[in-house]
Amino acid sequence: MFCIKNFSFCGVKTFTSIHVMNFSTGRMTLGAVNLKGRSLLTLKDFSSNEIKHLLWISGDLKQRIKHEGQNLPLLKGKSIAMIFEKRSTRTRMSTETGFALLGGHPCFLTTQDIHLGTNESTMDTARVLSGLTDLMLARVYSHSTLETLEKEATIPIINGLSDLYHPIQILADFLTLQEHYGSLSGLTVSWIGDGTNVLHSFMMTAAKLGVHLRVATPKGYEPDESVVREAEKLSKQFGTNLFLTTDPMEAAHGSNVLVTDTWISMGQEEEKDQRLKDFHGYQVTMQTGSVASPDWTFLHCLPRKQEEVDDQVFYSSRSLVFPEAENRKWTIMGLMVSLLTDYAPKIPLLKF
C-alpha cells in the first residue's frame, strides 16, 4: 500500500513524499531507494527520499551496533582507499574505524603515500585504485579533483571534503538534530560565519528535509552564487524559507539551531589578521542565543577556535558538538553500506 503525504507551506502544496507500507512488518518505509554503486560528491545530486534513506540506515547501524551490541560484518572482504590531501581528525577516524567495524579493510593514503596528480595523474590513480579497492573517499583541495576521480573510476567515490562541498558533515549534522528534536521538518537552522563548503552542503540539503535556513556572512564572504541560486530553487520547490543577511543577530532570530565553522580554513593562514577583522561581531555567544528560539542548540563541525564561539556556548548543555562529532562515524558507515550493499534498515523509519 502506498501512503502519499502532501506537504504545504502557507496553504500551497509544494511537494509529495511517497511511503510504502510493508505488510510483513507493519512499518512505513521510504519507497524505492537503492544507492548501490552511486558516488556522493554533493548532496545536490541526491533526492529528499535518498537523503532520508541515508539517515535512516545510519540510525539503524547506530542502534544495532552501539546500543544493541550486534556484530554486522556488512563490508567483510571489502576495502576502501582513503585519500587525504588535507589532514582531519573526524573524517579519518570515523571512516577508518567505521569501515573496520563493518568487517572491511581501510587504507589511509596521504600525498606522501601516493602520487595523486604529481608523478601519476589523477585519472591514472582513479583507474588503478578501481582495480584494487571497492570504494574511494577523497579529502581534497579542489572539487575538480573529485570530479576527475568520479569520471575515471569504476567504483563509488565519496567526497570527504572539497573547497566546494562537505556532504558527509551535513549527514552527521542532520542525524544529530533528528535525534535531539525528534524530527527535522519545520526546524530553522541559522548559519553565522563564512560562506564555506559546509554552508554550501547545508544549502543543498536543508530544504529537502523541510528545514528553513537563515545565513549571515560578512560582505565579501558570501556563499557561492551558483549554490545560492540552486538553494533558492530548492526552497521554492520544498516550501521552506532561505534568508541571507550580513547581520548575525538577524540571522539568529527565532532559530532552533545556531551553526558556525572555522573562519580561517587550511591554506588561508596568511589571511588570518584580515579575516579576524572582517568577522568581528560574528562570534556565537549566549547573547546571540538570546534572540533564538527557547530550545536553541549549537553545532560546529570542529576543530573550533574561541573567536568563532565562546566557551559558555561551546561547553553548555545547548551544545551538540560532541554527539555531532560521533555521528560522523555512524553516518559515514551508513553511506558506505548504502553505496556498497543492498542493506535495508531493520529499525522503524525515522521521523523526518
Rank of each mutant, 00 (worst) to 15 (best):
R318D: 13
S317L: 14
G281M: 04
R304C: 05
E270Q: 15
L276E: 14
F279A: 13
P294R: 01
I332R: 09
D310V: 10
E270N: 14
T297A: 10
G281L: 13
F322Y: 14
G334M: 03
L299P: 00
G281K: 09
D273C: 04
R318Y: 13
E271Y: 13
I347V: 14
F279Q: 13
D311F: 03
C301F: 02
V321G: 07
Q306S: 12
Q287G: 03
K329V: 02
P323K: 15
M286Q: 08
Q287S: 08
E271I: 00
S265Q: 08
F298H: 08
F314D: 07
E307H: 08
S319Y: 15
T285K: 00
I264H: 08
M266W: 07
Q268E: 15
K272M: 07
E269S: 11
D342H: 08
A325P: 00
G289T: 07
D278K: 08
S265A: 15
W263D: 04
A325T: 05
Q312F: 06
D278N: 12
D273A: 13
M336E: 15
E307K: 05
N327R: 09
V309G: 00
Q306Y: 07
T288G: 10
E307V: 12
Y343W: 12
M266G: 06
I332D: 05
R318K: 15
G267L: 01
R304D: 03
E326N: 09
F279L: 12
P323N: 12
